[in-house]
Amino acid sequence: MEQYIEFFTNHIGLGLIWVGIAVMLIMSWFKSKFTPIKQVNPQQLTMAVNRENAVVLDIRAQADFNKGHIANSVHLASEKAKQKEFSTIEKYKNDPIIVVCVTGMTASGVADSLFKAGFTQVSTLTGGVGAWQSAGLPMTSGK
């Protein structure tokens, strides 16, 4: 314990950075545990689609979607997602929805907007389409 105190007194700037990172990690953990938006892995996505008729909502660019996407996924233009224009997917409001993007980063913001717009069961695919492909799962091409 004395070494920590000595380090902090000798390196106040580094100590504050270390404490800041620790606080951010703890806050991130709490946020992920208490958010209504859950994260699913590719296997959980497959089970949700097969057992609960979940809808996969792909928010990548149209060109990327056309090159390859998860089978039966619904495309929502990224412009509409950013503008919170969800009228084209209103019919899925009470269905489980799993939002998918390239890496999983953009999906969380869109999922939060969907939840605030009244969509009741919203999740995101951890790692996005990249995680799907890394798991060796199939993609379909075309519209």
Rank of each mutant, 00 (worst) to 15 (best):
E90R: 11
Q44R: 02
V40L: 14
V129G: 03
R51H: 05
F34W: 05
M1D: 07
S123N: 12
M105D: 12
H69P: 08
K84W: 05
G142T: 10
I98L: 06
K38I: 15
Q121Y: 07
A117V: 10
W29Q: 11
N66C: 00
L114V: 01
V129M: 06
T88W: 02
R60G: 08
A131E: 10
Q62G: 03
I12S: 08
Y92D: 13
V129W: 03
V100A: 03
V40G: 05
I98K: 04
G130C: 00
M1N: 08
G15M: 04
I5W: 08
S113I: 01
W29E: 14
A107D: 01
S108L: 08
V40C: 13
S28C: 15
T120C: 13
A77N: 06
S108Q: 12
A135L: 15
N53M: 02
E2Q: 07
F115Y: 15
E90H: 12
L137P: 03
V102C: 00
E2T: 07
I21M: 14
A22C: 08
S108N: 06
Y4G: 00
T124M: 04
V74T: 10
S73T: 11
F119R: 05
K93N: 05
L125Y: 03
G142W: 07
H69G: 07
A71P: 15
S134H: 09
Q62H: 00
G15I: 03
T120H: 14
D112G: 01
G20H: 11
K38F: 05
A61C: 01
G118Q: 10
G136D: 05
P42I: 01
G128T: 00
